[in-house]
């Protein structure tokens, strides 16, 4: 039984990791090796002459090249990474902050029609976001938000807010009311009790919510492509925009860039992995 389990796990790992591994290999190649007719999957330390050999010469050139501006783009990968960081972080901070405050209200006060409101909040996720791309485009054109950081920050915040409210409500419901009530009796105001007692206890929940919001903002492609094809272009849109340029796709640089791009999310997720499951079930798993 144990053997079977290991076999299944290893098989799944191989399947899941293969694309990443291929990307890692590609990031070490020269462009010619990435589009060679014979697959090259064994890195060598010196030049390889035989074009049919699976060996290729490993190099870090693609990583050194991340600061270079390629044909078909206005900025280097690093420039676009900067846009992704600004947009991803600010929209995550905004979603978590607004979501926490809103969830606190629903969790602690008698809000008339609270259930309906919460359902409404959730219902904003029923529609595939791209279904509203045209109205948003028209709106953003009128507001002059196309191609700006602010435009995508606002958009991602709105999309992630419903998730943030529901996740945070689950986490806040688990913090005993007595925590704040004790603080209230001890001489703190409602706001102070929220800041001094509730927020510290809700840190895990906020981190988990932040991961989900960040992943969704970080990887968002459709709106980034439609609204911000120039100006503040995020990394996913930047990669897609390289297609069809006259020099061809710079595959090693794309592979290297993609690896750098997934690294922060991986680290962040690993840090809060223990709490992620609680987040996915809206906090219903007791510790």
């Amino acid at each position: 039984m144990k053997l079977v389990r290991w076999f299944v796990l290893l098989a799944y790992l191989a399947l899941a990791a293969a694309p990443l591994a291929w990307m890692a290999l590609s990031s070490l190649k020269r462009r010619d090796d990435t589009i060679a007719p014979h697959a090259k999957f064994l890195p060598a330390s010196s030049a390889v002459d035989d074009s049919a050999s699976p060996w290729f010469e490993a190099t870090l050139a693609a990583y050194r090249d991340l600061g270079a501006v390629h044909a078909g783009a206005q900025e280097s990968f690093l420039g676009h990474l900067g846009s992704s960081v600004v947009i991803g972080l600010l929209s995550t901070v905004a979603s978590v902050a607004l979501g926490t405050c809103c969830a606190y209200g629903f969790s602690r006060f008698r809000v008339p029609g609270a259930k309906d409101w919460l359902f409404f909040v959730l219902s904003t996720r029923f529609l595939p976001p791209l279904a509203v791309v045209v109205p948003v485009l028209i709106m953003y054109r009128a507001l002059d938000l196309q191609g700006t950081h602010l435009g995508l920050i606002v958009l991602y915040t709105v999309f992630n807010l419903s998730l943030a409210v529901w996740l945070m409500k689950g986490f806040l419901d688990e913090i005993p009311r007595a925590f704040e009530e004790a603080a209230l009796v001890d001489g703190y105001s409602r706001g102070q009790a929220f800041l001094r007692v509730v927020l510290p206890e809700a840190r895990t929940g906020m981190a988990v919510t932040a991961v989900f919001c960040l992943i969704s903002a970080w990887n968002e492609y459709g709106f980034a492509m439609t609204l911000n094809s120039s100006g503040a272009v995020t990394v996913p849109a930047y990669f897609a925009g390289l297609q069809g340029n006259i020099e061809g796709m710079p595959w090693p640089q794309i592979a290297a860039g993609a690896l750098v791009f997934v690294a922060p999310i991986t680290v962040f997720t690993v840090l809060v992995r223990k709490s992620l499951l609680r987040g996915m079930t809206f906090g219903t798993i007791k510790q």
Partner: peptide, 15 residues
Amino acid sequence: RAPAERDVALVFQNF
């Protein structure tokens, strides 16, 4: 009046 203004201390049963 708000709890903070009453200057009483409460020991809870379960917290």
